[in-house]
């Protein structure tokens, strides 16, 4: 029941978008068709529809949400929360900004270095906090052996693990997942895929090649026809992947 109605709705969306693309091709000449669309004249680059409502609201909400994520992280010792929750909220703020201002722009603003530094740095800090007591003759993560002057090493060691360890890992990995999912398999732009062929091409050839090779003993005629082609493409894909 809902399936058919959904199909109708998506068809309507497609029609509306088709009309919009038509006006864009005519270089904004038709004022009648683009009436009510503030952004249809100035839109360029990757397909991304600006929304004044969403952008304005995100401008207001994002600082509060990010501050709240920091609060949840830093105040985890006295109230519900901690590094995991705070990191997830901070990552959600990045998602929010990306939806409002475009994922491509957000990707350029928040460089790959930042994302990787958050994830890797958090892991290294956590491991370091665990290994410092080991170096001083204690057990892994034995906080009271941390060399902290004037501070309770147990309490502030735990806070450091939550704030500098877990929260950056979670936020960095979540933001990275978001970007890498938004890019998809064969995304354009920076970040070359591993291997010279795209992912879809290599798997398609490999999937086509595999049954022929496994059934080769039974059906010799077909494999003689299709084996050289499938084998060569499969090898090329493998070489590209290994390179």
């Amino acid at each position: 029941m809902s399936g058919t109605t959904d199909g109708d709705a998506s068809d309507r969306d497609d029609d509306a978008e088709g009309g919009d693309a038509g006006t864009a091709d005519r270089d904004g000449g038709s004022a009648r068709a683009s009436a009510g669309r503030l952004d249809s004249e100035s839109r360029q680059g990757p397909p991304y529809t600006e929304s004044q409502v969403i952008m304005s609201t995100v401008k207001v909400v994002a600082p509060f949400a990010f501050t709240y994520g920091l609060f949840v992280t830093f105040h985890g010792g006295g109230s519900p929360g901690g590094g995991f929750q705070g990191g997830a909220i901070a990552a959600a703020v990045v998602f929010m900004i990306a939806f409002a201002f475009g994922i491509e722009s957000t990707r350029q603003w928040l460089a790959n270095t930042v994302v990787v530094a958050l994830a890797v740095g958090g892991t290294l800090v956590f491991a370091g906090l665990g290994l410092v007591p080991v170096a001083r003759g204690g057990a892994f993560l034995q906080y009271d052996l941390l060399p902290l002057p004037y501070l309770d090493p147990v309490k502030y060691g735990m806070e450091a693990v939550e704030i500098v360890g877990i929260a950056p890992i979670v936020s960095g990995v979540l933001v990275g997942l978001f970007f890498v999912l938004a890019r998809g398999f064969n995304g354009e732009g920076s970040g070359p895929p591993i291997g010279e062929r795209g992912y879809l091409g290599s798997t398609g050839d490999a999937a086509a090649a595999t049954p022929d090779e496994t059934e080769g003993s039974d059906q010799t005629d077909e494999t003689d026809e299709s084996d050289p082609d499938a084998g060569s493409t499969g090898r090329a894909a493998t070489d590209g992947g290994a390179r």
């Binding site: 909400v61 709240y68 909220i89 959600a92 929010m96 939806f99």
Partner: peptide
């Protein structure tokens, strides 16, 4: 508070 801030994200997404 978390839901109040993040429910908006779900809606715009």
């Amino acid at each position: 508070l978390v839901y109040a801030l993040l429910n908006f994200l779900m809606a715009i997404a």
